[in-house]
C-alpha cells in the first residue's frame, strides 16, 4: 500500500513538472514577442527592448522557466500585465469563489446522478432505465451556456426565484453566498449528471452479469441483499475514478458558467486574462487548475486503493 502511494506520488510530481513546462511554453513563447504586443503600436525599438528587459524576456528560456517555476513554488506568482498588481491575491480570491461553486455542484450532482445510474442499471432495458437514459441523453446535448441562459431567463428574470447576478463580495461567507451559488451550480450539475448516470449504469450492468452475483443468488440470498452487499460495492468503487475524471469536466463547465452568470471566479478571471493578453495571470490560473485536477485524481487513487482489497493487499 505504501509502495503504491509512493509510486502514485512520483507520477504526480513528474506529470506536474511536465505540465508546468507545457503551460509555460504555450503562454510564454507561443504568442511571439510579448513586449511588442504590450507596447503601443508606435513605440520605438528601444522602448520595446527596455520593456523586454523589464519583463525579463531577454533571458534564456530555461532561466525564464526556472524563475517562473521557482516563483510559483515560493508564492511569488508574478505581476499582472493589465492591472500591475500581484497576481496571487486576485487568483486566490477567485479560486475561493470557484471552489464554493464546484463544491455545491458536486454536492448536488453526485447523489442524484449516482442514484439515477444505479436505478437505471438495476432495471436494465425496462421502463425506468429507458426513461433515465432518455433524460440523460437530452442533458448531454445541452451546453452549459444554453442551460445557464435559460435558467437565468426563467428562474431569475421571469419567476424571480433566484438572484440573476452573482455579485459575491470578497469576504462573503459560504452561507451568505449560497443563494448566488444555486443557479450556476445547478447548471454545472446538468453537465455532470448525464456523464455520471451513464457510467454508473454501465458499471452496475457489468457487475450484475458477473458470476459472483450468481453465486450470491444461488446461496439463497434475497435480491435486495445481493444488490446491497455484493453488487453496489463493486460497482460504485470504479465510480470514484469517474468522479475524479469528471472534475476536469466540471472545471471546463465552470469556466463557461462563470461567464454566463458573471460569477467572480477563476473562469471569468481567465477570460479577462485572455482578452488582456495578461500572460502571468493566465499562467497562474492554469497552474492552479492543473494542480487542483491532479490532487483530485491523486485523492481518488488513494481512496480507491484504500477501498479495493486487490490494491490494498498488494
Amino acid at each position: 500500500m505504501s509502495r503504491y502511494v509512493l509510486r502514485r506520488m512520483g507520477f504526480l510530481l513528474l506529470t506536474l513538472l511536465l505540465t508546468s513546462i507545457i503551460v509555460f511554453s504555450i503562454t510564454q513563447f507561443l504568442p511571439g514577442d510579448v513586449a511588442r504586443i504590450l507596447m503601443p503600436r508606435d513605440a520605438s525599438e528601444e522602448a520595446i527592448a527596455a520593456k523586454r528587459t523589464e519583463l525579463g524576456l531577454d533571458r534564456s528560456p530555461l532561466v525564464q522557466y526556472g524563475a517562473w517555476a521557482g516563483g510559483f513554488l515560493t508564492g511569488d506568482w508574478g505581476t499582472s500585465y493589465a492591472w500591475e498588481i500581484p497576481v496571487r491575491s486576485r487568483v486566490i480570491e477567485a479560486l475561493r469563489n470557484s471552489l464554493m461553486l464546484a463544491a455545491v455542484a458536486l454536492a448536488l450532482a453526485l447523489p442524484v446522478s449516482m442514484g439515477l445510474g444505479v436505478w437505471a442499471g438495476l432495471s436494465e432495458h425496462r421502463l425506468p432505465d429507458q426513461l433515465i437514459s432518455l433524460f440523460s441523453l437530452s442533458l448531454v446535448g445541452l451546453p452549459e451556456f444554453v442551460t445557464g441562459v435559460l435558467l437565468i431567463e426563467w428562474l431569475a428574470h421571469r419567476w424571480k426565484w433566484f438572484p440573476a447576478i452573482s455579485s459575491i463580495a470578497p469576504d462573503t461567507s459560504f452561507i451568505d453566498a449560497l443563494p448566488y451559488l444555486i443557479l450556476p451550480a445547478t447548471t454545472a450539475t446538468f453537465v455532470l449528471l448525464a456523464y455520471i448516470v451513464r457510467l454508473t449504469r454501465a458499471e452496475i450492468v457489468e457487475q450484475l452479469h458477473r458470476p459472483y452475483v450468481r453465486t450470491a443468488v444461488l446461496k439463497g440470498l434475497s435480491w435486495p441483499t445481493v444488490v446491497l452487499r455484493h453488487v453496489l460495492r463493486n460497482a460504485l468503487l470504479p465510480t470514484i475514478t469517474v468522479i475524479a475524471i469528471s472534475i476536469g469536466w466540471l472545471i471546463g463547465g465552470i469556466i463557461v458558467i462563470e461567464n454566463v452568470f458573471n460569477f467572480p471566479g477563476l473562469g471569468r478571471l481567465l477570460l479577462s486574462a485572455i482578452d488582456n493578453r495578461d500572460f502571468p495571470l493566465l499562467q497562474a490560473i492554469t497552474m492552479i487548475v492543473v494542480v487542483g485536477v491532479m490532487l483530485a485524481n491523486f485523492a481518488a487513487d488513494l481512496l480507491y486503493a484504500a477501498l479495493d482489497p486487490r490494491i490494498r493487499y498488494e
Partner: peptide, 16 residues
C-alpha cells in the same frame, strides 16, 4: 491533466 476547455482557451489566448 489540463481540462480540455482550459487548454483550448490557453492556446487561443497564446496564438490569437
Amino acid at each position: 491533466a489540463i481540462p480540455a476547455l482550459l487548454l483550448a482557451l490557453v492556446l487561443l489566448g497564446a496564438v490569437g
